[in-house]
Design a protein around this nucleic acid. Structure first.
Lengths: 352, 352
DNA sequence: CTGAAAGCGCTTACAG
DNA sequence: CTGAAAGCGCTTACAG
């Protein structure tokens, strides 16, 4: 018996394991990393000792010499939308099993220290990969730092396609089109629209989808009933007030996201309108809020869970098979199916 | 001129800086860490070279030999509540300036791998500190792993006080009391209550505050109008339906959080009740949703930003002055002021 | 299939 | 105030 003391006050290292197992540290390293060329017998013996000693490899040491830090960052912006948390949950679940940990970094795209912050994150920590969500999916400063460091990255619901990196998204334009068509099919012809903020993924595509749908019915977008919002509840309050104060107010309003749709409902309630008879309202994203307001919102479901899964899967694929240096990181671009969720906030327009 | 090439394809190391500055690596290290005993002249010269070379210290190397990983983890649970994101924002902002990065780990307290997961996080990454939020603030398994590793930690809004670690919170019991008093002062005498889930911080204290308030008015809590919810919107739907179907329904309902209060509103709307005349509703937390539903909720504001700030400040204090080993980590327990936000979901009961 | 040596980029003692 | 040496716990070549 040459393993003297199983219990010790300091954390066991690879050397302790090697000694206790009667093997070299290189062999222990091989077992840890599931490499080939270890006899089944040796592997088993080492694994048993690792378990007994409760050995846990030091990530810093692995990172210093090796090329992996086992750290992946989620870079997002505020307002990143209420699904930031759900995206993170999805990523965590997937990365966990592979031994990766998730770091988070919030980036204000207006800030002048964006480059510095991302650079520190990427370079000091030797990140293995990065996930980008709105509104930094299309931030050139952030992306160029990541590309310079030659780290694989995935953009979740980006606005524009790009040569580098990977992406996962739904067809936002088609989704906004479907949503508007739903209102047109109900007989609405005067349909207001509240846009999202510039620079934010989705803003442009959702607006385009709305315009396309109108044109399919031979209508032209009317600037009088198109408002500029900011994706927040508050931003849509004055927009709605203006729309409902028009001589000829819209009979339906498409808000570019659910939070703004909630604001439309509040203003309508406040004016004593009967919903959805006097005003139909639709949102976008299907966040939890969509079901919690009254009437619950007709909206497009953003398949957050699936998007996060797809993003994680793409990265895990890349990370677990990078063997040849010089080989360009493989890319993937996935477009997931979307669907309109019809609830009680939409109905045919009431007769006047 | 002994700095040959400023530009290089590989990242500059401390050795490159030392060479270019004509100093030893130890001196560069001193400058990096803002240690004393460096002449102003040398310090400045080194700093200039660091900037020119865009030198960024490798955290893995710092962590391997030193005792700091510059990594702090936020351990939370799902449902961690919609303010998980806000807490993280607050922590990020504060830690950033100190050079710390934030890792996140979601823990399902029902899972049997909790210990393993937290242990891996803490031990493999050599975490510098941990922040715990609901519902893991009172999880003994998690806390004992952290304490064994001798890492400072802060619990945000814990349910029970503890000997070890630090905590920040509001007086939830007093807050629930205030909220209920507000209804009592309006003249309500039959006030329903929807509890949060067991094991979740806040559940017990909020209920106690409600009971206390009733007793101050000489009333006893009536089990018939006390429901068991789960802090989710959906969980409160059936609770509300039962309460409103009673022969003598409550004239007001206290929901243990805002999401459940939103569910109360929806059921009431669905039954055609006039709000707040037929039913007053209060929530707890003042999450964004509270202002987005109709009528907007009277609730208690959870000062998330301040709580996150306080938590971060406590940790930064501990981390930046740990000099003497053996000295126990200093602790802090802070109770922040709370206040009731009165909106339009509460009013005196209508005459029957 | 297995192992001894060197080294990743820093920090910690320890000397001057 | 400054620096040369050793070492943190692993992995990467390189030999057997």
């Amino acid at each position: 018996m040459h393993r003297c003391s199983i219990v010790s006050d300091r954390k066991p290292t690879i050397i302790d394991v090697a000694r206790a197992a009667g093997a070299s540290i290189k062999t222990v390293s091989r077992v840890m990393n599931n490499e080939r060329y270890v006899s089944a017998e040796t592997r088993e013996r080492v694994q048993r000792v690792m378990a007994e000693l409760q050995f846990q490899p030091n990530k810093s040491a692995q990172s210093l010499k090796g090329d992996k830090s086992y750290l992946i960052a989620h870079v997002y912006g505020d307002p990143g939308g209420p699904y930031t948390g759900q995206i993170q949950m999805g990523l965590l679940t997937r990365f966990r099993d592979q031994g990766y940990h998730l770091l988070i970094e919030e980036i204000d795209y207006r800030g002048d220290d964006v480059e510095d912050r991302v650079s520190k994150l990427v370079n000091q920590l030797n990140l293995d990969a990065v996930v980008l969500t709105a509104p930094v999916t299309d931030n050139d400063t952030v992306i160029s730092v990541i590309e310079r460091a030659n780290i694989p990255y995935v953009r979740v619901t980006p606005q524009h396609e790009r040569d580098g990196g990977s992406s996962v998204r739904i067809d936002e334009r088609a989704a906004a089109n479907d949503l508007t068509m739903h209102l047109l099919a109900f007989g609405h012809r005067r349909i207001g629209f509240i846009k999202g903020p510039e620079h934010h993924a989705g803003t442009r595509l959702r607006y385009s989808g709305y315009c396309d749908a109108l044109r399919e019915y031979g209508l032209e977008p009317d600037p009088e009933i198109i408002e500029q919002g900011g994706f927040t509840y508050r931003s849509a309050l004055p927009c709605t007030r203006r729309l409902l104060s028009l001589a000829e107010p819209p009979t339906a309003i498409v808000a570019s996201n659910d939070e703004m749709a909630a604001a439309v409902l509040s203003v309508a309630h406040d004016r004593g309108l009967s919903l959805p008879g006097d005003l139909s309202v639709v949102g976008f994203d299907d966040i939890e809020l969509a079901e919690m307001v009254w009437p619950p919102l007709t909206t497009v479901k953003q398949p957050i869970q699936e998007l996060a899964d797809a993003a994680a899967e793409i990265l895990v694929n890349i990370l677990t098979r990078r063997k040849q240096p010089g080989e360009p990181a493989p890319q993937a671009h996935r477009v997931l199916p979307h669907h309109v969720v019809i609830r009680r906030s939409t109905a045919p327009p009431a007769r006047r």
